[in-house]
């Protein structure tokens, strides 16, 4: 498989001597939906900054689609679309002008720029706002505008730095659908996020960065397979509660209240077995939820072990 991004021994020390990246190496395959996770200050935005040439690196090499960034700066930039963490457009400009101007920076003729702007503003639900000043947009709209702007030159690689931070659930889900479709059409996507559920839902591969070093780099599937146990909360009828706790012999069960139990399913076990035993006991489950986000638990484990 060809690589979209190859980073080798990348280091960055800022002027204040803060060592943001300590020789990280990373590869992202073409067509991947890749998550770069890490706590605040871990080095995610610095990594993105270096790839997008907004941050000068101290050492190391970066290749984008097999081309060295230093030797092929213009070709590299044509392949890249970047959605930064902070709003970084002119708040006094009109929505449509922001996108068309960006297209101009990539050398797109005015008619094509307008066509692309219309396309992405429609797809991202900003069509009705296209003539408004960008400062009048809500937080979620501003983030979508930055996505439209990053896509106007139709890059092969899209880097999103916490694109759904502060966005409501409904809007976040619609953005997920948009990004999944974009990835399906062939765009490689690198995503940093604080919502681990988001990474689990969207990404096939993952790297966890902490304190300037990569502490994990694997597929989402393998990472999730490392989970030792999962905790489920089951709601049952009040009258069935004693039976439920008595009959679930193979699992750790804890009573939460007079209608809820917490069941721990260890690696190799199946939630189906829980339901099977409860059904045999004549217990009706009224609802079920996963108590903790699986990835969140792993994320915390990885960071703890890296310390």
């Amino acid at each position: 498989m060809k690589t979209a991004i190859s980073i080798k021994n990348l280091s960055k020390t800022y002027d204040n001597q803060f060592e943001a990246l300590k020789g990280i190496s990373l590869e992202v395959e073409q067509g991947d939906f890749f998550a770069l996770l890490g706590p605040n200050g871990a080095g995610k935005s610095t990594t993105i900054g270096v790839i997008s040439t907004l941050v000068n690196r101290s050492a190391g090499e970066v290749e984008v689609f097999g081309r060295n960034v230093d030797n092929h700066i213009y070709e590299t930039k044509l392949d890249l679309g970047v959605v930064p963490q902070e709003v970084n457009f002119n708040l006094f400009e009109r929505v449509e002008d922001i996108v068309i101007t960006q297209a101009g920076y990539y050398g797109l003729p005015r008619t094509l720029a307008k066509e692309r702007s219309d396309k992405y503003l429609r797809q991202l639900g900003l069509w009705d706002k296209r003539r408004d000043r960008s400062r009048s947009l809500s937080g979620g709209m501003k983030r979508r505008l930055m996505i439209a702007r990053a896509l106007v030159h139709e890059p092969r690689l899209l880097i999103l730095d916490e694109p759904t931070a502060g966005v409501d659930i409904e809007l976040r889900r619609s953005m997920w659908d948009f990004l999944i479709e974009l990835n399906r059409q062939g765009t490689t996507i690198i995503l940093t996020t604080h919502y681990l559920e988001e990474a689990e839902q969207l990404c096939r591969n993952i790297a966890i960065i902490d304190n300037g070093t990569i502490v994990e780099n694997t597929s989402m599937k393998s990472l999730l397979a490392e989970i030792d146990s999962q905790v489920f909360v089951l709601d049952v009828l009040k009258a069935d509660l004693p039976k439920a706790t008595r009959f679930l012999k193979d699992f750790d069960v804890r009573t939460l209240d007079d209608q809820s139990i917490e069941v721990t399913v260890r690696r190799g076990g199946s939630i189906n077995a829980v339901f099977f035993q409860l059904e045999n006991a004549g217990v009706a489950v009224t609802s079920m939820r996963n108590k903790t986000n699986r990835l969140e638990q792993l994320f915390i484990n990885k960071l703890t072990s890296s310390e």
Binding site: T53, P84, N88, T101, Q102, Y105
Partner: peptide, 8 residues
């Protein structure tokens, strides 16, 4: 940054 990330 709009300009700096572009190939201008």
């Amino acid at each position: 940054e709009e300009l700096l990330v572009s190939p201008v």
